[in-house]
Design a protein around this nucleic acid. Structure first.
Length: 421
RNA sequence: GGAGAGGUGGCCGAGCCGGUCGAAGGCAGCCGCCUGCUAAGCGGUUGUGGGGGUAACACCCCACCCAGGGUUCGAAUCCCUGCCUCUCCGCCA
């Protein structure tokens, strides 16, 4: 969320940002809404001031045993007036807040301008896609042959886009999870295992609500949302808190299952593990001082890359252009891993700097040493990494002609085997 | 699920038969004084958000004693609802 005051004082900056994002949003009503809001606020406050003064008077007079009837009579009317004004004020405030909650973040100046994903920019590449002397298979074919993933029974138990991992498949998930957490914690990230059901406030804090309700699984009674990413519970750890300067930066890593409706993606990636309603992910989350967030995004991205390097999986780093940037993000790098079965790079991590956008929604602040007042922290996060997709990448990149899969060196201690067969 | 207790400032903790309460007192923190150093002691000071104001400070106003409603001229204090915490009983991985 952007600051109301910032918006009304920088309406042109916002207008340009929305254009760059290719995000149609009518700003025209907002300023008059704010005018009205501030007018009513002033009126209400003046009346309250009067009431406070007179009520104090009444108290004094009563103690002196004097008559206060006229004053009380007069104040009755004032109280009603305040109530009436506050009622309209509340309606206006709700409107203003709703408006602000639906305004996306302003892209960082370093983000390439572009209309959609076709104008994203490749920043760098790592690793050479392997040359196969046979036609590499898709991971679902590999997995079915090895009997380590069962899509049919996943569908029977739950439905489409669910899978059962079996044997070495299940172990591969667990091994990847452990490898990632070990690697991340060795770099100073503190391991977190958070709730995976959260309340509405948390979903609003990180920006999933109110705009993206359709993408979430929800429990009705009692009301909970299933998290679509660990970003939600982990960022909300510090919701409504004022941190001390010396606590920053805070680096967390968390494994959680993630749940997504994938509404509107019918027909996309219907086969395989790429797009599931439930998947595992290890996440990296940072809370930092504003002046550090830019640099911290580079480091966070590098930390996610390190996992792919450790696994020997070729990938490229993409800077999302303004038109493809997520709603809450000021800047995002996507990591795309090479999938021989599809002959394509596919997204496996998304690393973003939200600057103060989430912090303002979630009210996460910090206090500088010896300085008055508070500032919003900057929040960042990135997958490090999506486990299901990493498993896919391992299966496809390390497959052999006979249908078996070589276990990457780094994963062997965790798998307890050299080859999946 | 049943019965009870409670949620106050960075922390502890008063107030809770309505007005003098943004809230006593203590601790912690900061500034000064004092002492050869340390400890002790003395004086002062220390919340957040919003609106106005200023070149910037200052300053003024409003709100905030879990949250949301209500009663009242006036609510931390009374009433209702919700959330959370604790204790006992039951149930349970």
């Amino acid at each position: 969320m952007l600051d109301a005051r910032f918006v009304r004082e920088n309406i042109d900056i916002l207008k340009r940002a929305l254009e760059k994002r290719n995000y149609p949003l009518d700003l025209s009503g907002f300023l008059s809404l704010e005018d009205e809001r501030l007018g009513l606020l002033k009126e209400s406050e003046e009346l309250r001031n009067k009431r406070n003064t007179v009520s104090g008077e009444v108290g004094k007079l009563k103690r002196q045993g004097q008559s206060t009837d006229k004053l009380i009579e007069e104040m009755k009317g004032v109280g009603e007036k305040i109530k009436a004004i506050d009622e309209t004020l509340r309606v206006i405030e709700d409107k203003a807040r709703m408006f602000l909650l639906n305004v996306p973040n302003i892209p960082h100046e370093s983000v390439p301008v572009g209309k959609d994903e076709t104008e994203n920019v490749e920043v760098r590449k790592w690793g050479q896609p392997r040359e196969f002397d046979f036609a590499p298979l898709n991971h679902w074919d590999i997995a079915e042959t090895l009997d380590i993933v069962d899509f049919e029974r996943g569908a029977k138990i739950a439905g489409a886009r669910f899978a059962v991992m079996k044997g070495a498949g299940a172990k591969l998930e667990r091994a990847l999870m452990n490898l990632m957490l070990d690697l991340n914690t060795s770099k100073g990230y503190r391991e977190i295992f958070p709730p995976i059901l959260v309340n509405r406030e948390s979903m609003t804090g990180t920006g999933q609500l109110p705009k993206f309700e359709a993408e979430l699984f929800r429990i009705v009674d009692p009301e909970f949302y299933l998290i679509p990413t660990a970003e939600v519970p982990v960022t909300n750890i510090h919701r409504d808190e004022i941190l001390r300067e010396e606590q920053l930066p805070i680096h967390y890593t968390a494994y959680t299952p993630c749940f997504r409706r994938e509404a509107g993606s019918y027909g996309k990636d219907v086969r395989g593990l790429i797009r599931q309603h439930q998947f595992n992910k290890v996440e990296l989350v940072k809370f930092v001082k504003p002046e550090e967030s830019c640099n911290e995004l580079e480091k966070l991205t590098a930390d996610a890359e390190a996992i792919l390097q450790k696994l020997g999986l070729p990938y490229r780093v993409i800077a999302l252009c303004t038109g493809d940037l997520g709603f809450s993000s000021a800047k995002t790098y996507d990591l795309e891993v090479w999938l021989p079965g599809q002959q394509k790079y596919r997204e496996i991590s998304s690393c973003s700097n939200f600057e103060d956008f989430q912090a303002r929604r979630a009210n996460i602040r910090f206090k500088r040493e010896g300085k008055k007042g508070t500032e919003y922290v900057h929040t960042l996060n990135g997958s490090g990494l999506a486990i299901g997709r990493t498993a896919v990448a391992v299966l496809e990149n390390y497959q052999q002609k006979d249908g078996t899969v070589v276990v990457p060196e780094a994963l062997r201690p965790y798998m307890g085997m050299d080859v999946i067969k």
